[in-house]
Design a protein around this nucleic acid. Structure first.
Length: 288
DNA sequence: ACACAGGGTCAGC
DNA sequence: GCTGACCCTGTG
């Protein structure tokens, strides 16, 4: 892949397996907006960029080559060979074959752990458009302003301190209902060192799950999302309503609604890369 | 109008 | 382990 500077943008030539729609609209990330020209404006890591695909080129606006190499290359998981990954998964069965064909260009973003913790606490029993609104508004209310882009001030995702010390007024304003005390308590637990997000890397997968579930509003499903999207755990297999549906329909001998058993079975069937199988199948199932 | 559900979790058996 | 309640709001 070639990275070329072009004004305030960079152009990725020969970027394989990169489809903005399949990357951003699969529910892993909440901090993007689709522009009228079909491009995606994204806030992450105290930066704002705009991503657009044009034929076999990817154009990233408001981005330098240094920023790309230092941050966005990792964020977009460019070290991974998604073609081989899809090919490998497609061998499992016809469902994964169809899903990996359908969602070609999907990537699992390497996002900030704390942002994933708060975002996915908010996601519980909620709808994706509302989750997006809440996360955006939370950032606007107590995130650092990082500059104007396309006529709008953009705000970074708030720090642990900011969420832990959010005012009751602001908390009420984001309208996340029963989840409101969860995000504050969890942020405080992280601030106090009761749960250490920085040492997650040192733990085995199961231990990392146990650590995250200590947080309030974090159950097994949210813990898996945090680990898959914010901690690079390919094996994490988040079981939500959609996964329960397709697992029962295609992969289980008899109908089951127990999330723990379904998760165990999912990892048995899909193996080390269960998280990717989940993402392809989830996106495929939800799009129909 | 009003019931229903949405990338689940928690408390109470 | 299993069940029901849960804040909020768009949908039919």
């Amino acid at each position: 892949m070639q990275v070329i500077q072009s004004g305030n943008a960079i152009v990725l030539k020969g970027a394989e397996e990169f489809e903005p729609k399949n990357i951003f609209e699969n529910g892993q990330c909440f901090r993007w907006t689709k522009e009228e020209d079909g491009s995606y404006t994204v806030v992450a890591m105290k930066r704002v960029i705009n991503v657009k695909k044009d034929g076999d080129e990817v154009i990233i606006d408001n981005c330098s080559i240094d920023d790309f190499n230092d941050m966005w290359h990792r964020y977009f998981d460019f070290d991974r060979d998604y073609f081989s990954l899809r090919k490998e998964l497609s061998l499992v069965d016809d469902h994964l074959l169809a899903a990996t064909e359908f969602a070609q260009g999907l990537r699992i973003l390497r996002q900030d752990v704390f942002e994933m913790v708060i975002s996915f606490i908010i996601s519980a029993n909620n709808q994706i458009p509302r989750i997006k609104k809440a996360v955006d508004f939370l950032s606007e209310l107590c995130g650092e302003p990082i500059g104007v882009y396309r006529g709008k001030m953009r705000y970074a995702f708030p720090s642990v301190e900011a969420v832990a010390n959010i005012s009751d007024e602001n908390l009420a304003a984001i309208k996340i209902g029963f989840r409101a005390p969860y995000i504050v308590k969890s942020a405080r637990m992280i601030l106090d060192g009761e749960v250490d997000l920085k040492s997650l890397d040192k733990l085995e997968y199961e231990e990392a799950c146990k650590e995250l579930v200590k947080l309030v509003g974090v159950g097994p499903k949210v813990a898996d999302c945090i680990l898959l999207f914010g901690n690079g755990r390919d094996i994490a297999f988040p079981v939500d309503t959609w996964v329960i549906k397709f697992m029962n329909e295609y992969y289980l001998e008899e109908s089951d609604k127990n999330m723990n058993r379904i998760k165990k079975r999912g990892i048995e069937i899909f193996g080390e890369k269960a998280g990717f199988a989940q993402q392809y199948l989830f996106y495929y199932a939800r799009s129909r």
